[in-house]
Design a protein around this nucleic acid. Sequence first.
DNA 1: CTTTTAAATGATACTAACTATCATTAAACT
DNA 2: AGTTTAATGATAGTTAGTATCATTTAAAAG
Lengths: 144, 144
Amino acid sequence: MTSTPTSQFDAIATLEDAGLRITGQRRQVVAAIERKGGGFTAEDIAAELEGVGRATVYRTLKLLVEADLICKLALPDGTPMYSASRVEHHHHSVCTSCGAIEEFRDTTVERVLRSLTREIEGEIVGHRMEVFIRCRKCLDSPSG
Amino acid sequence: MTSTPTSQFDAIATLEDAGLRITGQRRQVVAAIERKGGGFTAEDIAAELEGVGRATVYRTLKLLVEADLICKLALPDGTPMYSASRVEHHHHSVCTSCGAIEEFRDTTVERVLRSLTREIEGEIVGHRMEVFIRCRKCLDSPSG
DNA sequence: CTTTTAAATGATACTAACTATCATTAAACT
DNA sequence: AGTTTAATGATAGTTAGTATCATTTAAAAG
Ligand SMILES: [Zn+2]
Ligand SMILES: [Zn+2]
Ligand SMILES: [Zn+2]
Ligand SMILES: [Zn+2]
């Protein structure tokens, strides 16, 4: 992995630039996200940060999603997951066995989007693409 | 729209072929889905079919998703929506203003998938792509 | 450095979208 | 028609949030 890890200062600075107050709780949520690797749930964060209320965790995650600092996505069954954004525009691979989430960038996806302009009625305002995988770790594990 | 509408007989026959019992409730859920156009929620169906229990509606929708007769997808904020499948493998356009869902097929998306095999660690088992739009109806409405 | 003030927090209650339990009902096979 | 077993529905429980509102606190003002 050669991408730069998300810096706490970046996330905090972005919130600050948006005119939001930098509270201890928001610092804690951002720090917890940085400690997570691939993907996490809101409840993961809430459980880890006993000193931060559940409502505040959800409120902060929503702010971070709106600021494009994290992504909210769904497993095939709809279970919501969050994932820290490390590169600007990206898509996700999600392991259906262990839930591991990785980002990937692929310009061919964007090229497809441009070709869809002809097929789709209306104005395209965004898109989402998820690739479901069995990750290397899960493939290599004894349970196959 | 030139695609063939989903036939109730198809859905019922598919469930039957899977060894499931054809109950009055399942017929009613399938019929309700056929009456819907673009997209619907589980609660839409439950509210419309007063004679069918909510649990049964959710159970039936799950069966139909598993049989690929309907798709479950999410609005940008994660709100789950269902949409009848009319063509075999497809993706969705979702209007972020009114929630209207349309299917589209695009072979270039599948070509992208093949190219991703080189970029993504692990074995690709599936994918999902949603294009968010403002539909013609919403663009043409007085509120812009 | 205090004071001010509006944003943020947390406890609580509530909602949405399911899921589990289990006694009762009814497909479908004989 | 009788038997069996899947399916149903009422109820309660779970997960992932959102709304309310009294209390706290960040940060701007003095
Ligand atoms: Zn895995
Ligand atoms: Zn993209
Ligand atoms: Zn619309
Ligand atoms: Zn596809």
